[in-house]
Design a binder for these strands. Structure first.
Length: 423
RNA sequence: GCGGGGGUCGCCUAGCCUGGUAGGGCGUGGGAUUGCUAAUCCCAUGUUCGCAAGAACUCGUGGGUUCGAAUCCCACUCCCCGCGCCA
């Protein structure tokens, strides 16, 4: 959620942001509601003031055993006015909060203005020279090596589910273990969060529209499956005032992720690239405003180093205004070269949400007890989403005789295995 | 799941039975006093609206009763203790 004061004080800032992001948003309605709401608040407070004053004078008069008939009479009138005002303000309040919560985050200056993902800016490219000459896609490779079963998964769970088998199960664990070790080396505190969250918590870290498109709800419970550990990590410190000197918190999180992918029908239907369930090791950082950009770059460089170590071709892309996610103020994507698709595809995403999540979750920090509190900044980055990364590994490490070489850094996590061969 | 106890301002705690609009302590900031430090005393110490004066809100959450609710009633929730069930 953005700072609601901006609506009143600097609406142009919002209008620019909305234009740059190319999103439809009932902006003038929000302006009207904001003004209306303010008026109603003042009116309501005036009535409450009358009520409080009357109640006080009733108390006083009763103490002196005077008659309170006149006050009771007036109180009745005030009560009636309050009821009719409430009916009015409930509707305004509801619509206002819907809008203020669904307006996207402000963008940072350095975000390139553009119309679509075509305007994303490639910043760095790595390992271009090792692009594979053989170009089978991961589904063919994994099938012929006996590493996945998509048909049976479809039978029992539907599209976008999978069985991992044999060496791919091991590789999945290997990637996870390597990622956790890597983060510990870099000073992260390891966390495994709850996989389900209450509405209050999860709505703090995502925007309303995403509820329907990405999040699974548990029937008859106030619980939602996390779409990423970011959702749990953002809300972990909900309603807390943190000690400034303890910041930053750098968490290395492991969790499965559950996504509806409702907005992506027909897209990436092959294999395990876009699925309803996958495992991810995630970086989540809580810091203060002055340090948030530096933390963002730091997180990106750690992620870069991870993929350099895995020795796959990839590039870093700064997302344009139109492609940047709604809760983020600036996002870098890591795109791996996928020989089977003959293009770069996103395998990790590194975002600075600044105070957008913290505001809604009321996560603040301060140096001393009666200093003014400041909202924290939250940042998140994939370290590794194992299924997508395995797509990249399978396709980039394939050989001319259908086998797949195991990346060097993963071998010690797979009992020294060097190659996955046709049986 | 059952029974009992509990959730009060950054932290601790009083108030709840007997309704009148949150008191104290700690910590922190400012001030006074004092050779210095310490101690002592005074003021301040949540959120929102408002240029301000001021006002409203805030006692786990949401309803209800009442002129008036931290206080009474109902539902929910979380924590602690005991019992049950259980990987």
């Amino acid at each position: 959620m953005i700072d609601p004061k901006i609506v009143k004080d600097n609406p142009n800032l919002l209008q620019d942001m909305l234009r740059n992001r190319k999103v439809d948003f009932p902006f003038t309605e929000l302006l009207d509601l904001d003004r209306k709401r303010r008026e109603l608040i003042i009116e309501t407070q005036n009535l409450r003031h009358q009520k409080n004053t009357l109640a006080q004078s009733i108390a006083n008069k009763k103490k002196n055993q005077e008659s309170v008939d006149r006050e009771l009479d007036e109180m009745k009138k005030v009560g009636e006015q309050m009821v009719s005002l409430e009916n009015n303000s409930d509707a305004v309040e509801k619509r206002y909060s819907d809008l203020i919560y669904s307006i996207p985050n402000l963008l940072q200056q350095s975000v390139p203005i553009g119309d679509s993902e075509k305007d994303n800016v490639v910043i760095r490219t790595y390992n271009d020279f090792i692009k594979s000459k053989v170009k089978s896609d991961h589904v063919d490779l994994a099938n012929s090596l006996g590493l996945i079963d998509l048909e049976r998964a479809a039978k029992i769970s539907g599209a976008r589910f999978y069985f991992l088998k044999n060496e791919l199960v091991l590789m999945n664990q290997a990637l996870t273990n390597y990622a956790l070790d890597f983060l510990v080396e870099n000073g992260y505190q390891l966390i495994q969060p709850p996989y389900m969250l209450k509405n209050d918590a999860i709505k703090g870290s995502i925007i309303m529209d995403d509820f329907e498109d990405v999040i699974y709800k548990i029937e008859n419970e106030d619980l939602y499956m996390i779409g990423t550990s970011e959702h749990a990590m953002a809300s972990m410190h909900m309603d807390e005032i943190l000690d400034s000197k303890d910041l930053p918190f750098r968490y290395g999180c492991i969790s499965p992720c559950f996504r509806k992918e409702a907005g992506a029908h027909g897209k990436d239907m092959k294999g395990i690239f876009r699925v309803h369930q996958f495992e991810k090791v995630e970086q989540f950082v809580v810091t203060d405003s002055p340090n948030s950009s530096a933390e963002h770059e730091r997180m990106l460089s750690i992620t870069e180093r991870f993929y350099q170590n895995l020795e796959i071709p990839f590039r870093i892309v700064l997302l344009s205004s139109a492609d940047t996610g709604k809760v983020s103020s600036k996002t870098y994507d890591i795109e791996a070269w996928m020989p089977g698709q003959d293009k770069y595809r996103e395998i990790a995403s590194c975002s600075n949400c600044i105070d957008f999540q913290a505001r809604r979750l009321r996560i603040r920090h301060r140096g001393k007890v009666n200093e003014e509190t400041q909202l924290v900044h939250t940042l998140n980055s994939t370290l590794v989403a194992t299924e997508r990364t395995m797509v990249a590994i399978l396709e980039n490490y394939q050989t001319t005789n259908q086998s797949v070489i195991v990346p060097t850094v993963l071998r010690k996590y797979m009992g020294g295995m060097k190659e996955i061969k046709v049986k």
